Computed example of a mutant assay.
Amino acid sequence: MELSLHRLRMLRELRRRGTVTAAAAALHYTASAVSQQLAQLERDVGGKLFERLGRRVQLTDLGMVLAEHAEEILGAVERATMALEEAQQSRSVRLTAGVWASVASGLLPPALSALAATHPGIEVRTRELTPEETAGAVRDGTLDFSFVIDYSDYPMPEDPALERAVIAVERLHAAVPVGTVPAGVVSLQDLAEQPWILAGPRSHFGRAVRIACQRAGFEPTIDHEVGEQATALAMVGAGLGVTLVSDLGLSLRPPGVDIVALTDPVMRTVSIAYRRTAARRPALHLVIDAVRGAAAELGLGARAPLP
């Protein structure tokens, strides 16, 4: 019997997520492709590994046995990969990172350019996800590392499976239609009567801004609920409302938008999250150093994590 690591990863994701569709999304395949590979795994094993219960899938006893061993096998493969990286003087390795728009546009280009100049054997590939998704994808092994955010009023819960390396500390600024705020600074309370453009309350950013507004004594009136920062800023430029934007997000500012400092700053820490089991990977730490250097060049150098 020969077991494919590729198919074992699919079985592991199926066990974790409960549906073929969810497993396929985590692995960036179609559901039909995952179904075909799992069916082939059953043929390889010569027994039934799972059964369907409505939309969900339940592993059989045989499937549970193989899934448990799959965790050990895939963990051993990861440890072997790290050992090989340590032994290779060339540092030739490929890493996959989870990013979102402002990090991908404002921080990664200078970091990866600097990394390519000093360590050309390290290749970083990226996948754009929401900030809420990236840590889970690292924990599951889909990504090697990801960028995560902690807001001063709304830190992310600690994950015992992950380590974090602080990369940058950003301020949030008010983004308002041109001429709305004549002064150079503004308080959140001064924006209480304005219509707001904001991400949904389930998003980390949307929740953090709502909490900041509540601490300032008001509940924002949200006329437009949008997930993308660039979309929110475009709507601000059209005079449809106000929002907050981070330092890295300033690169997305369109015409018609004034950026105004807040009298009581809302801060956020940007970190790189990676599995504790990957802490010894030299290539990972070289990437972290390159990104920290890029953040420092932008004036966003890493400081102590926010409480």
Rank of each mutant, 00 (worst) to 15 (best):
E85L: 07
R52S: 11
L66C: 05
E51V: 10
E78F: 07
L59M: 09
Q58K: 15
E85G: 05
Q58A: 14
A67F: 10
E51M: 07
V57M: 08
I73A: 10
E68N: 15
V57E: 00
A70Q: 03
E85H: 09
V57G: 02
I73N: 00
A67V: 09
T60Q: 07
T60I: 07
I73M: 08
G75K: 04
E86S: 04
E72V: 12
V77T: 03
R52H: 10
R55L: 09
R56G: 12
R55C: 05
A67Q: 08
L74A: 02
E86H: 12
L59P: 01
E78L: 08
V65N: 10
I73P: 00
Q58W: 05
A76E: 11
G54V: 09
L53K: 15
G54A: 10
L62C: 07
L74P: 00
L62V: 10
L53P: 06
R55K: 14
G63K: 00
T81L: 05
A67E: 05
L53F: 13
V65I: 13
A83W: 04
A83Q: 08
G54L: 08
R56W: 11
A76C: 08
R79Y: 06
A67C: 07
V77K: 01
R55S: 12
E68M: 11
L53W: 11
V65G: 11
E71K: 02
E78S: 09
L66M: 13
M82A: 11
L53V: 13
D61G: 15
L53H: 15
R56H: 14
R55A: 14
L66I: 05
G63P: 04
M64T: 12
L74T: 06
E68H: 13
Q58H: 15
L53T: 13
D61H: 12
V57Q: 01
E85T: 02
G54H: 07
V57H: 02
E72M: 11
